[in-house]
Design a protein around this nucleic acid. Structure first.
Length: 582
RNA sequence: GCGCCCAUAGCUCAGCUGGAUAGAGCAACGGCCUUCUAAGCCGUAGGUCAUACGUUCGAAUCGUAUUGGGCGCGCCA
């Protein structure tokens, strides 16, 4: 509809350029839905914008534009209002057509081809597999999944991907943590390192190892602390302490170190996968960091980088001159111990992503990684790819509140609320909806007590209730022997204010989807659905649907049937269920 | 110190690339169930849009400065 109006205006304005009334066409003709019914259905501010450069009054110009406008069957009337807005009042048929359109397209209503032919790679969550997902990861999961669904709805081909950081020191610490808990379980008394992972899930994994391997590695317990420096809380250095324990464990265990490591990461990773799947978050690919090292891609990428001339040696380490591309300081890619940094494998990963031929590569990161953006974009530019293809969306942390107090969380200390716990407490629907209700760059306060004890305060129930109410009306209709038939519905019978408002709201849906998707803002859709539900609830209280007047009944049923369809379609995108009854 | 994000009603937040009287939920107050689910509807009250300048027909929105909060600034990942 907007496009039709834009075309009409374009024609009118072009004619005015030809006859010299105005100098040039505006860069963009903006047409908006009106907030107020009194202002019609759509409004444009072109006259206001053009008035200045053509030195005439906006109202005068608006009048000329309208006179120049071609007749159109879908416009009822036009008005000049306020400082010079042109308001369009659409004809009854134009507005009501949406009801039949929704019903005939059903579940696919809202789908469009805006992104047709474009492939998108969307990487999100990518939490280190050192423990279960916590509530902070949940926000990225809900946000990413919703964006993926939105983009797919408007025609993009989207692949969801999870980057698994299964290489590096943290994995060694994880292995040692499990090994120590294992030794404890089989009866050895030893001091658990400060810097090891403290969470109970480590004990669970250790127990499964003890069950399978029994006392196979018990003999190493006594040797573990030979020549190991003191731990942090003993007055030593906790980093050095754990590193030395890692070295010792690798020496005494030999290849079995890997055995324990694999049991650990597989257990944690499968937990993460199940958790996300249960949350309605699914991936096309789980990309292993270790695979980049095993297949030599990390190494070859560093070599490719060296050929660009943006690399130099300093203090025995290899530095990438990211400052050549606007970063604030240069970054190490290969350490003085000859091991490459996390950054190096990340460059390889991004290079690999680009070589897969996507039109757009989107990363959703926690806001604490914002300092990382410049160096990643630098590496892309250095390797002759277009850094603008890479879009990085930052998600702020969700602060968790319990009993009015902020809950401190840390993976290392094991004191965190897991995503699974949250889902069990408030339900998947509320969790998914609550997470995306705030703009991603907005800090979010997640009040557990509120979400738990007063679930009716969560707007998701309000929307679901609207859906359930409509379902109930159709059940009642059936009981009364009233067969709903779209073909018998004459939508023009719907003339009440609450009906017009609801129809107008339905007309907004496709625009909201597009805007929500292209701006990566699922909260726009969430707020729209709330508005739609509100319009329905008002309608429900204002007008009865099941009447002796069959014709009117059919028309009203058609309207709420269409409403139900849009509610379902929107909720599916957000990963929220639409129950038939509550 | 430098960089990024944020500041809107008592609380939690919307406000679409500047646009018509700044909106919603919760909390408060007052109405509405012999009738399709009251997890609902309608109404009232509540804001110097952090502050100060600037840009212009027009600013919560753009620019600069200040204040206050979050995060980042490793040869960790």
């Amino acid at each position: 509809m907007k496009e039709k109006l834009q075309n009409l205006l374009n024609q009118s304005l072009s004619a005015l350029v030809v006859n010299g009334t105005i100098n040039s066409l505006p860069a963009k003709i903006r047409i908006d839905h009106t907030k107020d019914q009194k202002h019609g259905d759509y409004a444009t501010n072109v006259a206001l914008i053009l008035a200045k450069q053509n030195k005439c009054s906006p109202k005068e110009l608006a009048k000329i534009i309208i006179e120049q406008l071609d007749e159109s069957e879908f416009i009822e009337k036009m008005e000049i209002a306020g400082p010079g807005f042109i308001n369009f009042f659409l004809s009854e048929e134009t507005n009501t057509a949406v009801v039949n359109e929704i019903i005939s397209q059903g579940n696919s209503y809202g789908s469009s081809s805006v992104g047709e032919g474009q492939r998108v790679l969307l990487e999100f969550v990518s939490a280190n597999p050192t423990g279960p997902l916590h509530v902070g990861h949940g926000r990225g999961a809900a946000y990413g999944a919703s964006i993926s669904n939105l983009l797919r709805t408007i025609g993009f081909e989207v692949d969801n991907e999870y980057y698994v950081n299964d290489a590096g020191r943290q994995m060694d610490i994880l292995t040692v943590s499990i090994f120590f808990r294992y030794l404890e379980i089989i009866g050895e008394k030893l001091r658990f390192p400060d810097n090891a992972y403290q969470g109970d899930y480590i004990k669970v994994i250790a127990k499964s190892i003890a069950l399978k391997y029994e006392k196979k590695w018990q003999k190493f317990a006594s040797a573990m602390f030979e020549n190991i420096c003191k731990d942090g809380s003993e007055g030593g250095n906790k980093e050095q302490h754990i590193d030395e324990l890692i070295g010792k464990a690798k020496t005494v265990l030999g290849v079995d170190f890997k055995t324990i490591f694999h049991i650990g990461i597989n257990s944690i990773l499968s937990g993460i996968k199940d958790d996300l799947a249960d949350f309605g978050v699914n991936y096309e690919k789980w990309f292993s960091e270790q695979s980049l090292i095993d297949n030599g891609l990390a190494k070859s990428t560093v070599e490719a980088l060296q050929k660009t001339g943006h690399v130099y040696k300093k203090d025995k380490a290899l530095w990438f001159k990211t400052t050549d591309f606007g970063d604030e300081k240069d970054r190490v890619v290969v350490r003085d111990n000859n091991l490459h940094t996390y950054f190096a494998s990340d460059i390889a990963y991004h290079l690999e992503k680009f070589e897969r031929g996507y039109d757009k590569i989107i990363n959703i990161w926690g806001a604490d990684h914002h300092g990382y953006i410049a160096r990643v974009k630098a590496s892309i530019a250095a390797l002759n790819h277009d850094p603008n293809k890479l879009v990085i969306l930052l998600v702020q942390f969700a602060n968790l509140y319990r009993s009015g107090k902020k809950v401190q969380m840390s993976t290392r200390s094991g004191s965190f609320v897991t995503l699974e716990e949250l889902r069990n407490e408030v339900g998947n629907d509320a969790a998914r909806f609550f997470y995306i209700l705030r703009k991603s760059e907005q800090h979010m306060d997640f009040d557990l007590d509120l979400a738990k004890s007063k679930t009716n305060e969560n707007p998701v129930f309000y929307i679901q209730y609207a859906h359930a109410r409509i379902c109930s009306v159709f059940r009642q209709a059936e009981e009364k022997g009233l067969q709903f038939d779209v073909k018998k519905a004459n939508i023009t019978l719907l003339v009440e204010d609450s009906e017009k408002a609801l129809i107008k709201e339905l007309n907004r849906y496709k625009g909201v989807l597009e805007s929500s998707a292209l701006q990566y803002e699922p909260h726009q859709l969430a707020y729209y659905l709330r508005e739609l539900a509100n319009n329905f609830h008002s309608y429900y209280n204002a007008c009865p649907f099941l009447l002796d007047d069959v014709a009117l009944s059919q028309a009203r049923l058609a309207l709420i049937f269409a409403t139900k369809q849009v509610l379902v379609n929107g909720l599916i995108i957000l990963g929220v269920s639409a129950p038939d009854s509550m």
